[in-house]
Design a protein around this nucleic acid. Structure first.
Lengths: 354, 354
DNA sequence: TTGAAAGCGTTACCAA
DNA sequence: TTGGTAACGCTTTCAA
């Protein structure tokens, strides 16, 4: 009696146990358990029954060590607490689970040092492939991962000089659509409120914004690019920046829906009515966007879908390594959702259709 | 030439490689790598150097299989895409990383079937402990996990009939504070807008709401509990339910900040000014709460902290199994954040201080 | 302080 | 169709 040091630290049930109980060898048990062909129906039945009775779970570590495959994917991401990346991660998790893979997540905070650590961890944990949404450290570290035999898929990031699969939602196109929508309504003085810095999501939106303006022959107006560093400071920033603009902008294209909340408030405090005095277009189609006052025109994109698609691309590459030689590029189109925060400018002077 | 089947599928660098290069045995290499005492300084230095030069990473699978410890924690969670759980998961990830653990996440969608699968996965993956924020399947499956030698910590959930650590933010207390705040302002007719169903987070808020009312001698008014099933339906629900109430409620305590967005809109369309005609208090202190019109009074809680604390409790239990015999209960207090959406009722008749 | 050898639980390769 | 045996890469006795 009193065998157990820790109560509950019971011995693991191994394949030997079930082989014994089924009256077959370990090899036969293994084959039966894995659905391999060369097993007699009777043997298979007995093995499966034994496994059931003993509630047997194959040890993933032993299995991987012996067989090679870990059925694990890595996800390298700036911050899984951020709602955008959380949804992307959810897409990855769902797709991975559906195909029988586990995923291991590493947060980098977009620090290149932590990215390097993430790569080490992926190697140690024998992931079969990596989904990368954080590439501050650039191409060479990723190239090393590829050399080590891992497949990689870039999510919502681009990296020049590396032949690697990419899945991304087209920010440039989304920003273009948002801005073009405002142009089509007759706006010609359109501000862009965005984050400071030059990260991918900022750069691409800016590019789409510019393309739409150029297409209309609207010249660059640097003072219309309003930058903020952190959300809590945006309200003040708007309050100070907007009234200083001459002539007044008649529309704003904002970085995302979240930042539209303080913008709306600032506009209200400024006494500028939306959309009568100024139009506002966001990005993301956040859950609350439809319920703001006024309901927000925005660009719907699906980080969830990027996660799902990216994972599917990765798994396909893992499971049929011969096919699909070249790097695959998948671009998910965002979609403009027109609600009530955008309308023609009230001052008809700038309208094109009059 | 042309040795590599897949270009890049290079052979793994093992401990034998570094033992060879350092001119010691595998055992000595292992000891040196793991910082064990019985190694001569010279041997240790040579081993470490070799490891560095070859960019050696110990194989987590082999290490776990041989040594027992996986340094992996499981996280069982309803939905890592939801912003609340995403932040909780971030807390878990940060704390785990800080202590050298990896985490593996499983989404259950609060389905008891998926929970059971999650448990199987945890067993297969040899996690050392599990953080559980989804317990639809009840106590027995969790008891089985404990029997298998895993430590468990419940996050933001309670489970009777099981001696297990718990870390939770006190919804009941938060709801109490929110409601008591409204009472103190003089409100006596306070509606509670909440989700349908009886999940933990709903039940506990309701309890806190009731306790505050009782304390004031305000009787139960079932018609003041307004339920909604999904966010997109809430706006209509409010529009239809509020005007029907006699006498009018002078305040609303809502399930969370997100649902305050459509509520605010409905109130506006109803022509009820906040806070002049009706006060509104949310829950969560979401990023946007301070920027709504008016800025939202709410209850700040930190799912991130729950994740961090829960992970620390778990790791402590793993690393000093002898200590801390009894189940540990950690309750994080929420904090009321008073902004401008709550004020005394304008009809002075119900005020207490007059 | 060192090294040889025996596992850890599984799969894969051969013979039988 | 089966079972023995050799890996997989590492840690951990146990002698030396």
């Amino acid at each position: 009696m009193a065998q157990l040091a820790r109560p509950g630290a019971s011995r693991r049930i191994t394949i030997r146990d079930i082989a014994l109980r089924a009256g077959v060898s370990v090899s036969t048990a293994s084959r039966a358990l894995n659905g391999k062909p060369d097993v007699s129906p009777q043997a298979r039945a007995r093995v499966l029954a034994a496994a059931q009775e003993l509630n047997y779970m194959a040890d993933a570590y032993a299995r991987t060590l012996a067989g090679g495959r870990s059925r694990t994917l890595g996800l390298i991401i700036p911050n899984n607490g951020d709602s955008f990346f959380a949804q992307l991660a959810r897409g990855v998790a769902d797709a991975a689970t559906a195909h029988g893979y586990s995923i291991i997540v590493y947060n980098t905070n977009e620090s290149s040092e932590l990215e390097l650590q993430a790569h080490q961890l992926m190697l140690a944990r024998r992931v079969e492939g990596v989904l990368v949404a954080s590439v501050e450290s650039g191409a060479p570290p990723l190239a090393r991962l590829l050399e080590a035999g891992l497949s990689c898929v870039l999510l919502n990031r681009r990296l020049d000089g590396l032949q690697v699969d990419e899945v991304l939602s087209d920010y440039e196109e989304g920003a273009y659509q948002a801005t073009a929508h405002l142009c089509a309504l007759g706006h010609r003085r359109i501000a862009h409120v965005t984050l400071e810095g030059d990260r991918y999501s900022v750069r691409t939106r800016l590019a789409g914004y510019r393309r739409a303006l150029e297409e209309q022959g609207i010249g660059e107006a640097p003072e219309l690019i309003i930058r903020y560093s952190r959300l809590p400071l945006l309200y003040e920033r708007i309050l100070q920046a907007l009234p200083a603009l001459r002539p007044r902008p008649t529309a704003i294209f904002a970085y995302n829906d979240l930042c539209c909340v303080p913008i709306l408030r600032a506009l209200q405090d400024l006494g500028w009515k939306v959309p009568e005095d100024i139009s506002l277009v966001g990005y993301d189609d956040a859950e609350f966007a439809a319920w703001l006052s006024p309901p927000l025109t925005t660009v719907a994109q699906s980080p969830y879908d990027v996660g799902v698609k990216g994972t599917e691309v990765l798994i396909e590459r893992l499971e049929s390594p011969s096919e699909s030689q070249g790097a695959k590029k998948l671009v998910l189109k965002p979609q403009l959702v027109v609600r009530q925060s955008s309308a023609p400018p009230s001052t008809a002077t700038t309208q094109r259709d009059t």
